[in-house]
């Protein structure tokens, strides 16, 4: 009996509290993505171009890379990460506040790309940090960067920012 009640209650809370609140919070996060200014290799030139007047990524809700990393929530890894850059990348990722998203831009960031047999290149950044969206290309065109940002926004939109209902279910239903 208790179990049924808690189940019903958690469902109601999910519908009434979680979903509207998540929608509002996600909406706030969606269109103000702040990328960290961390250039790791040559793809940064194309990221610069995608903020120019022709592609203008800002209209999709991503800003140009300015400011301190402690106020940023998006890390775009522009291409090759070398062994010298690897500890710095990890350090920067750890310093960013939650929630944080990572886009791996270019073939080098995905699996080493052209530099698959180089002695100093990390074969894929997902070995050290989690990645949300991958952009293939060497270098990717600015349109591809814009598309990746829209895919990331779609991912954020589906994210459950608040989950009181499932928390209640987990907490009480196991005992009951």
């Amino acid at each position: 009996m208790m179990g049924v009640l808690v189940g019903k209650l958690s469902e109601v809370i999910e519908k009434v509290v979680d979903e509207p609140l998540s929608y509002v919070i996600n909406w706030g996060r969606l269109y103000s993505l702040w990328p960290v200014h961390l250039e790791t290799a040559c793809c940064s030139a194309e990221f610069g171009a995608c903020h120019g007047p022709r592609f203008d990524a800002e209209r999709f809700g991503v800003l140009e890379a300015f400011g301190s990393l402690r106020q940023c929530d998006l890390l775009i890894v522009f291409g090759t990460v070398t062994r010298k850059m690897m500890p710095r990348l990890k350090l920067i990722y750890d310093q960013m506040p939650e929630p944080k998203y990572v886009i791996a831009m270019g073939a080098c960031a995905i699996d080493g790309g052209l530099y698959f047999d180089s002695y100093n290149v990390l074969p894929g950044i997902d070995k050290i940090i989690p990645v949300d969206v991958y952009i293939p290309g060497c270098p990717p065109r600015p349109e591809a960067v814009v598309q990746a940002i829209m895919m990331l926004q779609e991912k954020i939109r589906r994210n459950k920012a608040i989950a009181i209902g499932s928390w209640i279910r987990k907490k009480f239903l196991k005992k009951g």
Binding site: C42, T80, T82, M85, R88, Y115, S118, N120, V121
Partner: peptide, 9 residues
């Protein structure tokens, strides 16, 4: 920071 060993490759 971007030494990729082009000469060796």
């Amino acid at each position: 920071y971007v030494h990729r060993g082009a000469e060796k490759m």
